[in-house]
Design a protein around this nucleic acid. Structure first.
Length: 195
DNA sequence: GCAGTGATCATA
DNA sequence: ATGATCACTGCC
């Protein structure tokens, strides 16, 4: 039985369970926590690239003053209101793409931002590495679009998770202090402290 | 420390 | 139509 090491974590390469929409049909903070140790899988130029997720953030609906859904449904944010496992990719600062997955039932806006995976730290670096752009926004995760998530049996213990406020949402008042950022503590994926 | 870059959304 | 803002990164 050959196990493969990812940082301090080991997994069995035989186990590959694709995360279906039910996984995402939960509170975004629960999903964000549960995604640590899961793998994001992307087809890029005919090759399957998979990376263990190490950093996520949760975003909720209108009551979350840090969420893009706080102003209601718009052309850009409509995927956040879609069924669970809908991708929400947006373009910001004139150059960066951000990868999110919608959570909860259709009509209930929420999402998890994937901020880091494998050795990649930073949400825009991740989308660059995985060739993710707005063309994916609004599409359901799956092999049809070449982007999906898998459970490969990595278990991340609570003691290995750092929980912090979300990055870059100081404008959100009290919501900025919500502890909705989840980071796997590893030697390689050491992160900057929240700004 | 801060420039770069352009979509997005509120305001009009 | 206009302007401020932005769930960021890389280079100074």
């Amino acid at each position: 039985m050959c196990a493969i090491r990812v940082g301090r974590f080991w997994y069995n390469p035989v186990m590959r369970t694709v995360l279906e929409s039910a996984f995402f049909d939960r509170d975004p903070a629960v999903v964000a926590r549960a995604l640590l140790g899961m793998f994001v899988v992307r087809m890029v130029e005919g090759h399957e690239v998979s990376l263990m997720i190490t950093e996520t953030e949760a975003y909720a609906g209108a009551e979350d003053r840090a969420s893009h859904a706080r102003f209601g449904k718009t052309a850009r944010t409509a995927p956040m209101f879609g069924p669970p496992s809908t991708t929400y990719v947006y373009f910001t600062y004139g150059m960066h793409h951000m990868l999110n997955v919608a959570c909860q039932a259709e009509g209930m806006p929420s999402a998890v931002l994937i901020r880091g995976a494998g050795n990649i730290v930073g949400p825009a670096r991740l989308t660059k590495a995985l060739a993710v752009d707005r063309g994916l926004s609004g599409q359901p995760l799956g092999k049809e679009v070449g982007l999906w998530f898998e459970d490969r049996g990595v278990v991340v213990a609570a003691q290995d998770i750092q929980v912090t406020p979300r990055v870059g949402v100081e404008y959100a008042g009290a919501c900025a202090r919500r502890l909705w950022r989840f980071v796997v503590r590893t030697a390689s994926a050491r992160t900057k402290s929240a700004r």
